[in-house]
Design a protein around this nucleic acid. Sequence first.
DNA 1: GACATATAGTTAGTTATGCAACTAATATAA
DNA 2: TTATATTAGTTGCATAACTAACTATATGTC
Lengths: 151, 151
Amino acid sequence: MSNNQFKRGELYSVINGMATTAVARRLQKNFRNAGLEITIEQWSVLYHLWKEDGLSQLELGNRTFRDKASTTRLIDNLEKQELVTRIASKDDRRINLVYLTDTAKPLQQITYELANKTMNESLQNISKEEIEVVKNVLQRVYDNLTNKDLV
Amino acid sequence: MSNNQFKRGELYSVINGMATTAVARRLQKNFRNAGLEITIEQWSVLYHLWKEDGLSQLELGNRTFRDKASTTRLIDNLEKQELVTRIASKDDRRINLVYLTDTAKPLQQITYELANKTMNESLQNISKEEIEVVKNVLQRVYDNLTNKDLV
DNA sequence: GACATATAGTTAGTTATGCAACTAATATAA
DNA sequence: TTATATTAGTTGCATAACTAACTATATGTC
């Protein structure tokens, strides 16, 4: 069909996404070593709230590539740790708007630094041009799989 | 420190590995649509056994980038489905060698086809050269994070 | 041989994932 | 305005991840 076939022996290493998994693990380790109790999944939610506070659960799910059930539990856990609060929208009471608490705010600076540190560790000896190609290709892969229905 | 910093706004999309996640989800969906009951994680183990049957659990963990606890459960589930069996090594009874059953064998052909189909769907309009760059960079990222101790 | 150490695998505990079925609130149509 | 459909979020169920503590077997040293 397409002409872009991986050799079979290489299929798994690509699908597995070992590199991105390793980056996530390293970031988690860097959080833990700094005494931060949050998971990277929780951080991914906080990250988007620091950019724009008061998003709905559905919107947070979209931005972090999760379904709504996963988003619900993640926010449950963030609420348990008192890092966010749910506030029902005045306009539409089906919607929960998620807001950062004062506890969450000081985490922004330190976690950004740890994320940058992690990226530096990951990207040693990799050129800006290569990074651009990777980002671009991963985005196109993502678009290939989400912008059309399953055949 | 390094000169390869992502802009903050781009950090998450890279760390999250959205593309590889999307590929994994699509492969899972393609399995399900074909009536196959296995998860992609289970498939990743079968994949390595089809290449070389009778690996130890530890070796399977290494090849699929999992720790031993995760490998144990995955093989528990594969055994429940009667796709593999554990046989204690004669030489060292600590070691479980994992073997494919006759039930697993016919899955190889169909799952390889579905994996190739998934890769074709994912890699539409992406050139061989770009794919080479991505594979190379991801490998180097992985090496950066695993070939040395945490700072 | 006896004791300490290392290794392979298991188990417990916590978090996270996805799907499917459900509730509650809103929007649409008759 | 009442019945129907859609939407946002929750819950149940199953799988999977990692860490830490554990068991059993092997190895190494005295």
